[in-house]
Design a protein around this nucleic acid. Structure first.
Length: 182
DNA sequence: TAAGTGCGTCGTT
DNA sequence: AACGACGCACTTA
C-alpha cells in the first residue's frame, strides 16, 4: 500500500504537494505513516483488515522522507514499549487550526509516564475555560502515539475518550506504567 | 456510593 | 445553530 495516495483529510493532491504513505510494522500490528514535503503529517493505527504487506519499502521516495521514516519507525517502536524516544522527524501540522496546533504542541511536552487532565491542558495553553474544546483538538490529532494525546485523562484520572479504539489508549498508558482510576 | 441530569464554556463544522 | 475525547453541581436510588 506504499506510494502516492490521497491525504487523510480527503483533499486531493494538487500536483505540487508531496504525500506518501509508508507502513510501520510493529509488535502490535502495521501502522501507516503519511509524509508531506514538510515532514510526518499522519499516523494511523493498524487496520482491522490488515494488509498482507508488511515491509516498509522506502525505495522510490526522496532521501528526507526515508530518513524521516527511519526516525518515525524507531519512535513508534519505543512508544509501544512505553519508553521515551530519542528523536522525531519534523511534524507537518499545517492541516490544523491555530488552536489545534497549540494543543498538539502542549501534548508534545507531556513526558512519558506523565499525564494531564483536559483542564490542565487548557490551562497550559492559556485558555482555562476551553477544556472541552481541548477534547475536540485531541480527537483531531493527526499523529496519535507520537503526539501523545493518550496522556490526557479526564478529571479524577479516569480514562476519558479516544477517537480510535480506546483499547489503544489503555494499552499505551499501561505500557508507560500509568495507573487509571477505572 | 453509583448513576443520571443539567448546564457553562468554546472551538469547529 | 448544533455538537463534542470536559467538569461540576445536584438529584435520585
Amino acid at each position: 500500500m506504499n506510494g502516492i495516495a490521497e491525504k487523510p483529510n480527503g483533499s486531493m493532491l494538487d500536483g505540487r504537494e508531496l504525500f506518501v504513505e509508508l507502513s510501520i510494522p510493529t509488535v502490535d500490528g502495521v501502522f501507516t505513516a503519511g509524509y508531506s514535503e514538510a515532514g510526518l503529517c499522519s499516523l494511523t493505527f493498524p487496520q482491522a483488515m490488515s494488509s498482507a504487506r508488511s515491509s516498509a519499502d522506502t525505495s522510490g521516495v526522496t532521501a528526507p522522507v526515508s530518513q524521516w521514516h527511519r526516525l518515525a519507525t524507531a519512535a513508534v517502536a519505543r512508544a509501544l514499549a512505553g519508553k521515551p524516544w530519542e528523536e522525531l522527524p519534523p511534524l507537518d501540522l499545517a492541516n490544523g487550526t491555530d488552536f489545534q496546533r497549540s494543543v498538539w504542541l502542549a501534548l508534545c511536552r507531556i513526558r512519558c509516564g506523565q499525564t494531564l487532565s483536559y483542564g490542565q491542558v487548557a490551562e497550559a495553553i492559556g485558555k482555562p475555560k476551553a477544556l472541552r474544546a481541548v477534547g475536540g483538538a485531541c480527537g483531531a490529532n493527526p499523529i496519535p502515539v507520537l503526539i501523545p494525546c493518550h496522556r490526557v485523562l479526564a478529571a479524577g484520572r479516569k480514562i476519558g475518550g479516544f477517537s480510535s479504539d480506546p483499547k489503544w489508549k489503555r494499552l499505551l498508558l499501561q505500557r508507560e506504567g500509568v495507573q487509571l482510576s477505572d
